[in-house]
Design a protein around this nucleic acid. Sequence first.
DNA 1: CTGAAAGCGCTAACAT
DNA 2: ATGTTAGCGCTTTCAG
Lengths: 335, 335
Amino acid sequence: MKVTIRKVSEVAGVSVSTVSKVINGHYSISEKTAEHVRKVMEDLNYYPNASAQSFATGDTKTIVLLAEMSPNTAFRNPHMFEIVAGLEESLRKRGYRLVLHGTDSTSACALAKDIISRKSADGIAVHVGIMSHPLAALLTQLRFPHIILGMPDFDSQVCWIDNNNTYSGTVAASYLVSRGYRNIAFIGGKSYDLGSTHRLNGVKQGLTGSGIQLEDKNIWLGDSTRAEGYQMTVSLLNQKPLPDAIICANNYIALGCVDAIRDKGMKIPKDIGVMTFDDYPFSQIIEPQLTVVDINVRDMGAQAAKFLVDIIRHPNMQIQTYITTSNVITRQSTK
Amino acid sequence: MKVTIRKVSEVAGVSVSTVSKVINGHYSISEKTAEHVRKVMEDLNYYPNASAQSFATGDTKTIVLLAEMSPNTAFRNPHMFEIVAGLEESLRKRGYRLVLHGTDSTSACALAKDIISRKSADGIAVHVGIMSHPLAALLTQLRFPHIILGMPDFDSQVCWIDNNNTYSGTVAASYLVSRGYRNIAFIGGKSYDLGSTHRLNGVKQGLTGSGIQLEDKNIWLGDSTRAEGYQMTVSLLNQKPLPDAIICANNYIALGCVDAIRDKGMKIPKDIGVMTFDDYPFSQIIEPQLTVVDINVRDMGAQAAKFLVDIIRHPNMQIQTYITTSNVITRQSTK
DNA sequence: CTGAAAGCGCTAACAT
DNA sequence: ATGTTAGCGCTTTCAG
């Protein structure tokens, strides 16, 4: 009835260990027998039992991702799922499967403990949103293979990976300069908005590198909303001289910025250039469509997979790094 | 060093089978010994090995989801991930874990075959986007527990679950009628756009039920884009008498519709009401914010989990059904 | 209510 | 290059 490795070995007239070796591509098997055994496996429609393999080898070829996935997360934070998709794809190519596990910051630690103790996964990925000190302590003390998706906002020895917003800011600045803009302004989130802050720093660096100064009066910081974006732009445009381009820290601010420019009677890009970060969510509906520095978040997931598998193979590896594959998508808001 | 069930049994002074029974809450164990054994397990910091359990029981407590997850899927189709989140949560509450597996329609069949043959999951969920005849045949012939997320566009015996767009259409119509609207129009996608078509049918039913007729000249169908939404609305508003409310089949069309109404110099909701489906993606940025029939897609995932687990327990169960938990979110676009 | 023992199907030393 | 065999850690009859 049920076809196991034993049956294959009997039919093929070899030992079970030989069959096992051809299953696992062991070098010591001659091509001749390997071929023969494969033929028998196919004839018998044999597939090795996955649970038995895990049990025998002791590893699961499974990674579990701990992340907050409360209602509407997919709408509010599609970035996270794009990372997940990248993680899954890259893991799969390396022979691992990805288990999704929704949780909150409070329960995450116990969950991780359970996963590690029960050996139900070979590694853990944790979305930075649910990261905590206890979890960091657990992961590092038990030296369990892990990767945090995003940089934790506290010091620790955990392995993490994140996009480099600073670099993206520099890319934006350099792009505008290369297009001939010289008097550039920045509107973004306040200091606790790390994404915005890093982008601002990057913009400053990029401009400085080109011998241009980002003047303080051309920097406005507020909440990341359409309304605040509008207000900041109004304030900005009430000053003289007017900037010839505005970099908005994110889509929401950009939405308000464009409104304000229109209401002021100015034209984009004729009178002023506008640029922002991320192609999502409003790139297709803001008029005109905006030139953006797009960040390849999926790639972040893919890199995370790569690192995690490396860590599983070399448990002492320590990774804390930024990865960046951002690129400018030129649209109608810049000349 | 490593603590197994045997060690627990030795320390506790009972047999391994007794320990196993307390792990699994078997009724035959006296509360006294159970308590004792639990204490020992805790002292020894014992956790049963997950792989060994799967191997011994023969089941994996795992469901794998097959879905297309190519780049930008999370942005283009966040609905899918919201379903996934609902699926995962509901599965987890029932003791199953969810494995994500990206694939395309072509490879899906071989993957399913592999999963089933190798017993690497107890059930399969398939996003309707990658559904095919061969896959349907495989699932039904092997009688493997499965659920398709979304209704396949061809007849088969597979188990599926979907939202009821027809019902949502009825809800929209009834709502408008209850608010006093009488001359209602519909703009939506063409016949091959099943979502739109079903919503239209539902609207018709809802109106008929209230003794109101949806006139043909008040139905405009085109592509689901902002531009077509604009054009259809222009055409609609060039007719007499003007409708007092427009139902847009989706967000994109609604976007164009609102533009056209504004350009025509009409005010929403004073001169005309507008309503659409789904709170995403543009609800927060369309001016005025639109009244919508919101569909609880996460709940669809949750229901799918429930059915799938039922099917695993009762393999002959056949499920092909619509589930619906849609509700009206009243905003500023209706009186 | 508890225990003994036979697997579950595969892998990996070790021997040949 | 191939075979022998001892596990991997837990579940589950079946006896007692």
